[in-house]
């Protein structure tokens, strides 16, 4: 599903060049649930941005679903992002002025679905996350857990094959976090590949595989069951 080979990402100022990722190679198979851990500043978010086609890499090859995306232009990357990738963020990132229905509608608009198709998909995902009755509410009228469920619904509405989650439970209490995690596991069971960045070792252990990133490089690729205490941020 995702294959990165010798990815390098560096940020340059007038005087200094910082390497966020270097010789970064990784493969995530279709249907996997992978957690990504590592200390702050290790390059987790940079990896996620490159994987989500939000930023291009400085060097290296990135294959998404078998397609080399390293040299695509902005329009092609946006199209691919819309069609194949779903995002879930720590801060939910719902658009505050739009009600829940319209928030979920955003990626579907960019996909070009007609009104009937969009409505069908929105109603379906709202039902899946158990918030159909709140469709016309604004995000501010929901709890954090509910907002994250809507964010997941929005990510799922386009039926992406690849879900990128950046600290999806970071702003939630333990009960809400567990509910969101169960929802992600449910989504994964239905075949969606998930890569989840987290600082929480317990959540990381619930993935099928954990990847540790240190100083912009992958340092542990073993399945979670073979890792002992290594899964700690």
């Amino acid at each position: 599903m995702l294959k990165m080979h010798n990815i390098r990402k560096s940020f340059r100022t007038d005087t200094i060049e910082t390497h966020a990722l270097r010789d970064f190679s990784l493969e995530v198979k279709e249907g996997e649930f992978v957690s990504v851990t590592g200390p702050s500043g290790s390059g987790k978010t940079t990896f996620l941005n490159i994987a989500g086609l939000l930023e291009p890499s400085t060097d290296g090859q990135y294959l998404l679903d078998g397609e080399d995306v390293s040299n695509l232009n902005d329009r092609q990357r946006s199209h691919l992002r819309n069609e194949k990738i779903g995002f879930i963020f720590q801060g939910f990132n719902l658009i505050p002025d739009l009600n829940l229905f319209d928030n979920i509608d955003v990626p579907l608009r960019y996909r070009g679905f007609n009104a009937k198709e969009r409505r069908k998909r929105i109603e379906k995902v709202l039902e899946q996350v158990g918030l159909s009755a709140r469709a016309r509410h604004l995000p501010a009228q929901l709890s954090g857990g509910q907002q994250q469920r809507i964010a997941i619904a929005r990510a799922l509405a386009g039926e992406p094959r690849f879900l990128l989650a950046d600290e999806p439970t970071g702003n939630l209490d333990s009960l809400m976090a567990r509910q969101v995690m169960e929802l992600l596991e449910f989504v994964n069971e239905w075949g969606t590949t998930i890569v989840m960045v987290t600082h929480d070792p317990d959540l990381a252990r619930r993935a099928q595989r954990n990847i540790q990133i240190v100083d912009g490089q992958v340092c542990d690729l073993r399945p979670v069951t073979e890792q002992s205490d290594a899964v700690s941020a």
């Binding site: 989500g52 939000l54 199209h79 819309n82 990132n93 960019y110």
Partner: peptide, 16 residues
């Protein structure tokens, strides 16, 4: 700008 960032993540191109 944050909303624009979200829209980019959800598939909006720069031209959109």
């Amino acid at each position: 700008a944050p909303e624009a960032g979200v829209r980019r993540a959800l598939g909006a191109s720069r031209s959109a």
